[in-house]
């Protein structure tokens, strides 16, 4: 696993809709943060490995998201494409601490935010 430089607090879980997602813009990436029906949160880089589809805009079902561009299904837990499709969406560390969502950013992702 990549070294996490910092955990970013992005506010309460309630701000992410159930079976939905919000995005977080970092210096280098856009991260999709998902909330499942059972209130788990997961994060992936907001682009699918196929055609850079914005995964945050997909339909969330179980612990999966369906890419809005071409309906590839990705596991939120591992980022792996499901079924016959190949590919893996980049996973980002994410957890809930006291009802608040925290996203673990690598040095690269945190970028200028910490340099400046």
């Amino acid at each position: 696993m990549t070294d996490i430089l910092s955990w970013i607090d992005v506010g309460p879980v309630a701000n992410i809709p159930r079976q939905g997602a919000r995005t977080l813009q970092t210096e280098t990436d856009r991260i999709a943060i998902f909330r499942t029906l059972d209130d788990q949160v997961y994060a992936l880089l907001d682009r699918c490995p196929h055609k850079q589809g914005p995964l945050a805009q997909g339909i969330v079902h179980g612990h999966f998201v369906t890419c809005p561009l071409h309906n590839m299904v990705f596991s939120l837990e591992t980022g792996e494409a499901q079924g016959p499709d190949d590919g893996c969406a980049a996973k980002v560390e994410c957890k809930i601490v006291n009802g608040t969502v925290r996203v673990g950013l690598t040095e690269l992702q945190a970028g200028l935010r910490h340099a400046g």
Binding site: S6, W7, I8, D9, V10, G11, N15, I16, P17, G20, R22, T23, L24, Q25, R30, I33, T100, V101, A110, R113, H114
Partner: peptide, 13 residues
């Protein structure tokens, strides 16, 4: 409204 605004970075540790 949640659809149209990215999440803020509230704090970092």
């Amino acid at each position: 409204a949640h659809e149209f605004t990215p999440l803020p970075m509230v704090a970092a540790e």
